[in-house]
């Protein structure tokens, strides 16, 4: 298992976390206005800790080029070759496989009921959904809307500051806290457990092919989200940063 890039990010993130101010600069809720405030004061500008802005902006530009010249052609080709039902099935399969991430993090946050629902969902989708390819859990009302947990959220629930905003090459927007989370979740993902090694006739590229399929399969959806955000933005860097921070804050609150 090659974890060198992750070790690098872990090191960077921990250093940045240590250097960040102790007091959290949370997004004020949109309705934080005083009772008699006029309309214009209804929404305060969220203060985002971005001491690495020039590095982040350069990375943002780099990723933008990467998405346009590498990821987009791959994604377009993939969509042409693989029909929508197959893409959806694969998406369901890899999402079901990430069950340990959601289960362990629900437990780490003390959300026992959620951990139970996640287990139920995994069993239903694996058994009734042909190994996870069909989201059979949609037929069970209690399982249709279980908020997904990850390590970045767990650290947030534990009161750890999100640290500086950080745009990672390839991965895109993040924070120091979420980068540490990403590394932890990497080890909780069965795709990285080398389980295929026990199968007869195992070849080294089987794992790589599986991991690549997971990444490529999620590309069209991710690029659509990114494009929508960028298309609507007057300043794409500020817009994506604001969206990312709001999105993660909301996920921690859930």
């Amino acid at each position: 298992m090659n974890i060198r890039p992750f070790q690098f990010f872990l090191w960077i993130s921990l250093t940045l976390l240590a250097a960040s101010p102790v007091r959290a600069q949370q997004n004020p809720p949109p309705d934080a206005a005083t009772k008699n405030a006029v309309d214009e004061d209804e929404y305060a500008v969220a203060k985002i800790y971005d001491p690495l802005e020039s590095f982040n902006r350069a990375m943002f530009k780099f990723n933008d080029g990467l998405y346009d010249y590498v990821f987009r052609p791959v994604s377009t080709g993939y969509v042409m070759v693989v029909p929508a039902p197959a893409r959806r099935g694969l998406g369901n399969f890899f999402s079901n496989l990430r069950f340990p991430i959601r289960f362990v993090n629900s437990l780490l946050q003390g959300k026992l009921k959620r951990a139970g629902l996640e287990t139920e969902k995994f069993v239903v989708n694996t058994l009734a959904g042909l190994g996870g390819f069909i989201r059979a859990s949609d037929g069970v009302p209690a399982l249709t809307d279980v908020p997904s947990e990850d390590l970045g959220q767990t650290l947030g629930v534990w009161g750890i500051h999100k640290g500086p905003y950080l745009v990672l090459p390839v991965f895109g927007p993040g924070s120091a806290r979420d980068t540490v989370g990403l590394v932890g979740d990497y080890f909780l993902n069965p795709l990285h457990w080398d389980q295929l090694r026990n199968v007869d006739g195992h070849r080294w590229w089987w794992d790589t092919a599986l991991q690549a399929t997971d990444s490529i399969n999620s590309l069209p959806g991710l690029l659509k989200l990114y494009d929508d955000e960028k298309k609507a933005a007057l300043d794409p860097y500020v817009s994506v940063r604001s969206a990312y921070i709001q999105y993660r804050d909301a996920a921690v609150q859930q």
């Binding site: 997004n27 949109p30 929404y43 933005a233 007057l234 300043d235 500020v238 999105y247 909301a250």
Partner: peptide
């Protein structure tokens, strides 16, 4: 008066962009 997609408020997002402008 606002649309919040996956926790992201449309107004907050534009507010962040308009402010420096």
């Amino acid at each position: 008066c606002d649309v919040i997609i996956e926790g992201v408020s449309m107004i907050s997002n534009y507010r962040a962009q308009f402010d420096p402008m």
